[in-house]
Simulated scan of single mutants.
Amino acid sequence: MMMGKVPSFSPGSTVSSALPGYVTLCLTLQVHRLVSAQFKVTGPDRLIITSLGGEAVLPCHLSPRMSAENMEVRWFRSWCSPVVHLYCDGQDQYGEQMLEYRGRTELLKENINNGSVFLRIRDIRPSDDGQYTCFFQSSVSYEAALLELQVAGQ
């Protein structure tokens, strides 16, 4: 039995330094392959008002109605921040969740087969005030909606 030499790559080698660029290119091509507007995402047409210490329920819906059970549903505050809540691969994912939302969020999925989800945020804090984005992504399309939460009594 002949043993082949296993190549080793040092941090400065051409192959390893080209790898991040290759991965970035693959991710870019994957995202560009997705097409926006296969469906629309809608939130409420009004401001959601809640009180300190209470809870808020943020609604989000797909139009036309379709199952979102196998989609990624991501709630976040800004594009560059970790998530407020993430549902992916048929279950809630907490690894990327912002620390300040740990243990306070729940995705209500009773109507997920009809394209409706609701994010419940418990123990409302002053920092919860502001915009939220509800983002749906299927294997071929993605779309998002903005929602505004106002915390009263600050």
Rank of each mutant, 00 (worst) to 15 (best):
S16H: 05
Y22H: 12
L147R: 08
D45F: 00
V84R: 00
A18T: 13
S8D: 10
L108G: 01
L62S: 09
Q150Y: 13
S127H: 12
C80Q: 07
S141G: 06
I112M: 02
A152M: 07
S51L: 12
S51F: 09
M1W: 14
L146D: 00
A37R: 13
L47H: 02
V117I: 05
L58N: 07
T50N: 09
D92F: 02
S67V: 08
T50V: 09
E148S: 07
R74V: 08
C26N: 05
K109F: 02
T42K: 11
C60A: 12
S8R: 15
H32N: 10
L25G: 13
F76N: 15
S63L: 04
V140N: 10
R77F: 11
Q97H: 02
Y101C: 09
I121F: 05
L99M: 12
G54R: 03
M71Q: 02
Y22D: 03
R33E: 10
Q91I: 03
L29N: 15
D92E: 14
V140Q: 12
G90Y: 00
Y142G: 01
M3L: 14
S116E: 08
M71A: 09
Q154P: 10
V6A: 12
V35G: 04
S13A: 04
N113C: 05
N70L: 08
L107Q: 01
G21L: 09
Y142E: 10
Q93L: 03
E110M: 03
T14D: 10
E106L: 11
V83S: 05
R33Y: 12
R74P: 03
L107A: 00
P64V: 02
I49Q: 14
V57M: 10
D123E: 13
S138R: 02
L29V: 13
A145D: 08
I124A: 07
G95I: 06
L99W: 06
L119V: 06
A18E: 09
R74D: 07
I112E: 00
H32T: 14
C60F: 10
D45H: 11
Q97A: 11
R74S: 08
